[in-house]
Simulated scan of single mutants.
Amino acid sequence: MDNEKKLKKPVASFIVLTNIIFLPLFCLVGVIKMLGFPEWVFHVMLCISAWSSTFAFAVLFKKIYPGQSFIQFVKDKFKNKLKVSVILTVIMIQVFIFLMVMFFVATNSEADTIFKISSWGMLIYFFLKNLLSGPLGEEIGWRGFALMELQKKHSPLKASIIIGFWWGMWHLPIWFTTGYVGIDLIKYMLFFMFAILATTMIMTTFYNLNQNLIIPITIHQFFNFFIGIINGNLVDLIMYNAIVYLAVAVLIIIINPKKIFYGKEAPINAKQYMI
């Protein structure tokens, strides 16, 4: 019998510690930028700061799941076989959203070209850098742990809203480094939060349908990647993404595939991750 005391509020503890770890790391990123360190140092430190949620979960793991293995927990999040129907649907949704955003940009933007990146080499580099500095670092904690933990007490829809809100608020320090002020900053923050909430609902739907962490990682990756390669005003890009992602999320909630959001218990993987 493991005598280690379990945390009474594991998700709240995770969110608090994630922010405590992230803030000094993000400040260090800013210092590195201001002092003129090489660009690669800046990007490495930025990538490390993005893993703050994984660091927080690793630190708290033994108090959340006494006697269990963190490594085995992570492995089991990727062990379920990917369903072709689910992964193809996720990709098609992301491509549809990308095409809609490009349409809005092409219609309303005065930029000479729609894309920021013009070579395949830079495109591959940006894709891999984005993957390391966002989806891989964030999804183990936010979706792999926090979302699934909340679904033990709340409906998937409510759990999505809770996690989406706090995941969005975790980005708060980043919002104030965009250079926006006044109404532009307010618009950026509001559209960002709507986009984050909608994206979280989509993640929850397909993650519950196919409990493999590759699903939310893929959605997260395409969200960031597509915004990063389109040439346009960032506030407008976030606004377009918020509109289309929210429309997709509302449609999914109405359809409620396999009653994944409400109507039955959330599909929780109750497997224990014993050493």
Rank of each mutant, 00 (worst) to 15 (best):
G263H: 07
F223R: 07
I162Y: 08
G121M: 14
Q151W: 02
F191S: 14
F206P: 02
K129G: 10
I174S: 11
G137E: 09
F194L: 15
P216H: 09
K129T: 00
M34N: 11
I219C: 05
I253V: 15
N130K: 08
G263Q: 12
M92D: 01
K258V: 14
F42C: 05
H154Q: 12
H171V: 02
K5Y: 00
A58C: 09
N3K: 06
F61D: 10
I21K: 01
K33R: 15
P173V: 07
I219M: 12
Q151H: 04
I87C: 03
W166Q: 08
I32E: 00
F145A: 02
L25F: 13
L28H: 02
I238Y: 05
M122V: 01
N224E: 05
K264Q: 14
Q94V: 12
T54H: 00
V250P: 07
K258W: 12
V84E: 07
K158D: 03
A56S: 15
A242G: 10
M102F: 04
V84L: 14
H171C: 12
N210Y: 04
K63I: 01
R143C: 13
I254H: 08
H220W: 12
Y273N: 05
W170S: 07
M102R: 00
A111L: 05
I238L: 12
L123R: 05
I21Y: 01
G144Q: 11
F261W: 06
L234F: 14
P24S: 07
V41W: 06
S119A: 08
N3G: 03
Y245S: 12
D184L: 05
W175V: 01
